[in-house]
Amino acid sequence: MPDQVRHDMMTRSSLWGRSLPSDRDESMKIEATVWKFGDNIDTDVIIPAPYLVTTDGQELGKHCMEPVDPTFSEKIQTGDIIVAGKNFGCGSSREHAPMAIKGAGISCVVAESFARIFFRNAFNMGLPIFEAPGVSGGIDPGDRISVNQDTGEIIDHTNGKRFSANPIPPFMQGLIEAGGLMAYVLGKRQG
């Protein structure tokens, strides 16, 4: 796995903590291998309910995607990317879903569209997600792709195709810049 990816994962996960990466011009780019899933991947597939008796991300990560691919968590390399169709993350409000994806070692999720609570939770948990039309038809399993977190540009280095992700709404960028929702609220309280 490229160091860059590891770096990005660390800065991203610290978004959920207090501090932001100080030098943002160190490229906010993820490059890794793709695991493909279809439309309507629901939260019961992402992390089945019987495993919800813990809040340990790594433990949850071991069962990520288990109903559709029982060995998913063993096969992937840290930093790999999930590419999916429409309505990714539909179903329950469990934050365990983005936690399990992060815990399994996935660096980001790129999909045609996301279900709304998953979308909200992913930001709150510091899992980068990108809504990019055309990706489910244009990217194949095992392709190497790069995702530029600042510009939203996605390049498939295996077939040369390019995609652009919808920009993150400014308000939500504000949340991220504050260091996540909790830090945002606590900052407001002090301010």
């Binding site: 409000s93 934050e95 609570i117 909200r120 948990m125 929702l181 609220v185 407001k188 309280r189």
Partner: peptide
């Protein structure tokens, strides 16, 4: 509407 646990934590404060 449904939200995440983090939203609830923030709401319990604010």
């Amino acid at each position: 509407t449904g939200v995440g646990s983090t939203d609830i934590a923030a709401a319990m404060i604010s």
